[in-house]
Computed example of a mutant assay.
Amino acid sequence: MKTTQRLESAIEKLYTAFHNNTLNPECCQQCAVGNILDNKDSWKYLSDSHGSLVLNYVGSVHQNLGRKFNGYSPLELLQIEQTFLNACGFQTPLHHQNKKPENPTDKDILFNGLCAVIRFLCELDGINNVMDYTKLFEVENDKPKYALA
């Protein structure tokens, strides 16, 4: 399957963070977007609230100028982060009174977040979800319909 460079890079960084235990939804440097942006937290200045889809003045300026951060626009970054947080069980935007998982760094919770983010990243690039394994189990005449590459 043909993918884009930004998608390949994002998946590699998220995969590494997941397996190195450096994925944390509550940290701007170690969340989904923080990892995609090389563990920088400068993206948090694009919005006034972590998990919000509303660009602030700085975010709007960057968006209107067509700026990209590791291939993603400011609005795409906010969408990626909100997707991750929601799939991890957070109520967004983050606030101390909003719902959050009991153990946000639990591997099962993070895996759910990663699957949602990768699905969303694939949608952004107009390709099939690379995490979709259902085709592996399709059969035709009692034989696998598709062969493993």
Score class of each variant (00 low, 15 high):
23 L>P: 02
113 G>H: 09
47 S>A: 15
52 S>A: 13
47 S>I: 10
22 T>M: 09
117 V>S: 05
19 H>S: 13
52 S>W: 04
83 T>H: 06
137 F>K: 07
130 V>R: 00
19 H>K: 15
21 N>S: 13
131 M>A: 07
107 K>C: 14
116 A>R: 02
16 T>R: 14
67 R>M: 14
30 Q>C: 10
30 Q>V: 02
84 F>C: 04
61 V>L: 10
82 Q>F: 15
79 Q>G: 12
146 Y>V: 12
142 D>M: 07
68 K>G: 06
145 K>D: 05
30 Q>T: 06
18 F>S: 08
77 L>E: 13
136 L>E: 04
90 F>A: 01
147 A>Q: 14
59 G>P: 06
113 G>Q: 12
3 T>D: 00
135 K>C: 03
39 N>W: 08
114 L>G: 02
93 P>M: 03
35 N>I: 00
55 L>N: 03
127 I>E: 01
21 N>A: 12
130 V>S: 02
23 L>D: 05
62 H>N: 13
134 T>H: 04
128 N>F: 00
102 E>T: 12
144 P>A: 08
21 N>W: 10
18 F>G: 03
58 V>C: 04
78 L>A: 14
41 D>P: 04
67 R>I: 06
62 H>R: 13
136 L>M: 07
39 N>H: 14
43 W>T: 04
88 C>L: 08
140 E>D: 10
24 N>I: 03
149 A>R: 15
134 T>M: 08
7 L>Q: 02
51 G>A: 08
117 V>Y: 02
63 Q>C: 11
99 K>E: 07
64 N>R: 08
84 F>K: 03
